[in-house]
């Protein structure tokens, strides 16, 4: 019944192009020997990459982004891991309410979260900077992490933990020898994905930082200057390639050694 549908297939290919052409344009123009992004292409050059490598403010921004990203991914994964455990192991009272509350930051417009944190932060007389940015990123990443972890832990066969106990392990031994290694791929995936989210995040960082720039803020600042544009393209190309690799890796990890290879679970994005 569902063997072929040429019209839908054609549509899928067109949509695919629509999705990828805008993204691929940046890497293409990053090798173009011209300042303006116009067709036809002029010639091949690596000078924008050279410029990128030598931009010192970029280095600082990159360092800030990594600092924020690593901290945010560790905290959000840790918080999400505990929450995912609670939701998959216990029948929690008011389950829907707690679940909804934790997922809420994912739905509320980022700008609302951003201005609210400004009000709180300045109200407490504190300086805006990378700390509130990191906090907001933890808040924003936790729902993603939790969905990724729950989708793995839901398929987790509880008999495996019981089998470990039956074979003489106590709760701690069961966790380290069975639960942890089985959930580990999802934990790594969660770390990677939340790092990518934080690394690319713009709005929260834009509102909540003062002088310390993250990489997206640096790029935003450079977009206004046409002469600076090409090296941002080079940077963008590098980021696109790097995030794609990280995301592919995390997808692969999430499906690694699933107890039942029946269906790939993509419930949690």
């Amino acid at each position: 019944m569902y063997n072929k549908n040429n019209i839908l297939f054609l549509y899928a290919i067109l949509y695919f192009a629509f999705l990828y052409i805008p993204v691929m344009l940046l890497p293409v123009f990053s090798f173009n020997d011209a300042i303006h992004m116009v067709f036809p292409l002029k010639g091949f050059t690596l000078k924008w990459y050279d410029q990128m490598i030598n931009a010192s403010r970029l280095h600082q921004a990159l360092f800030n982004s990594i600092k924020v990203g690593v901290t945010a991914s560790i905290f959000s994964t840790l918080i999400a891991l505990l929450a995912a455990k609670a939701f998959t192991k216990y029948k929690v009272r008011l389950r829907q309410l707690s679940y909804g509350a934790i997922l809420l930051p994912f739905v509320i417009p980022e700008i609302i979260i951003a201005v609210s944190l400004i009000v709180l932060w300045t109200g407490m007389g504190l300086q805006l900077g990378l700390i509130p940015v990191t906090i907001s990123h933890v808040l924003f990443c936790t729902p993603f992490c939790m969905l990724v972890l729950i989708s793995r832990m839901e398929g987790f066969d509880r008999n495996l933990e019981e089998a470990a106990m039956d074979l003489g392990e106590n709760a701690w031994g069961t966790f380290w020898r069975v639960t942890f290694p089985l959930v580990l791929p999802a934990i790594v995936a969660s770390l990677l994905l939340s790092f990518v989210i934080s690394f690319d995040e713009f709005i929260l960082a834009f509102f909540l930082t003062s002088n310390d720039q993250t990489l997206p803020l640096y790029m935003w600042g450079q977009l206004r200057f046409p002469k600076k544009l090409p090296h941002v393209l080079a940077l963008g190309a590098v980021i696109i390639v790097a995030t794609s690799i990280i995301v592919m890796l995390s997808y692969w990890l999430r499906n690694l050694g699933k107890p039942t290879d029946k269906k790939s679970n993509i419930g949690g994005i």
């Binding site: 089998a163 290694p181 089985l182 050694g257």
Partner: peptide, 13 residues
């Protein structure tokens, strides 16, 4: 005591 589980519960990792 030791148990043989219905779905065997062989550790997949």
């Amino acid at each position: 005591t030791n148990m043989v589980f219905q779905n065997y519960a062989i550790f997949p990792h």
